[in-house]
Amino acid sequence: MTFEQIFINLLNGISFGVILFLLASGLTMVYGIMGIVNLAHGALYMVGAYVGWSVAIQHGFSYWMATLTGGIVAGFVGLVMERATLRYLYRQINEQVLVTIGFIYVLTNLTQWIWGPRPRAPFTAGMLSGTIQFWGCSYPIHRLTVILIGIVISIAIWWFQEKTRIGAMIQAGMDDKEMTMGLGINLNRISVILFFICSFVAGFAGVIGAQLLGATLGQGFHILGLALVVVIIGGTGSVGGALIGGLILGIFDSFINALVPQIGMWAMYLIAVIVLLVRPQGIMGGRMK
C-alpha cells in the first residue's frame, strides 16, 4: 500500500467514523443519562436520511435545510416514542429492548409506505460535490466536510455538557438522580429535552451520513449494529468514548476493506468482542462521562 493510499484510506475511515460518532453519541447519552436502551436509534437515523432526501432532492431545497428538517422530524418521532411508551419503562431493560425493536419495524414499514422500497442514492450540497487534489489523487470535498462537521458537533456537545446549565443538570442527574431531584430540578423535563436532542442528532446524522451512505430501509438495523459496537468500544454514557470508538471503527473498517475485504463484513464485530473481553467498560467507560 502506497503512502497516498494510506492517507486516502485514513481520511475515508475518519469520515465514516465521524458518522458513526454522530449516531453513537445520541445512543450512548440516552443510555448513560436516562438508562434507556433505545435500539430504534438507527431507525431514527434512517427517518432523518429519508426526510432529508425529500427536502433536498424531491423538493429541491438546500442541503442544509434538509439536515435541519431531518433532525427535527427525527427529534419529534423520538419524542413521541419517549412520551408514548419509554417513559413508562424506566429501569425495565427487557421491556425497553422489546419495545424499541418493535419501533424499528414500525418506522421501517412506515418509511417504506411513504417513500417506497427503492433505496435513495447518496446526496449532498451542490457546493460540496466537487473534488480536491492530494498528491495527484482526487478526493471528494463532502467527505472532508463530514469530518469538519464531526469536529464542530463534538465541540458543541462538549460545550453543551460542560458549559451550560442544562448540561450541568444532566450530569448531576447521571451522577445521582435522587439527589438531583431532591434539589428541585425537574429531571423529567430534562429527560424529555435530552431525548429530543439525541433523536435530533440521530436524524441530523442520517442526512450528514446520506452523503456517503444514502438512505435505505435496512439502515434501522444495519447502522444500529455499528453504533452498538462504537458504544462498546468507547464505553456507555461517554460522548468522548463515542468519538474515539467511532474513529477507531471507521479507520479499522476502511483499512480492513482495502486490505482484506473478505472479512470486511464481520471484522468490526471482532473488535467489539475483544474489547468486551479485555476492557468490558470500554475505553472511556468509568473514567470520563
Binding site: M1, Q5, I8, N9, N12, F16, P122, R143, L212, L213, G214, T216, G218, H222, D253, S254, F255, I256, N257, A258, P261, G264, M265
Partner: peptide
C-alpha cells in the same frame, strides 16, 4: 460485502 456503501477502500486500489 453486501450493503457496502462506502467504496473508498476499494477505489483506492
Amino acid at each position: 460485502p453486501p450493503r457496502t456503501v462506502d467504496f473508498g477502500p476499494y477505489l483506492t486500489k
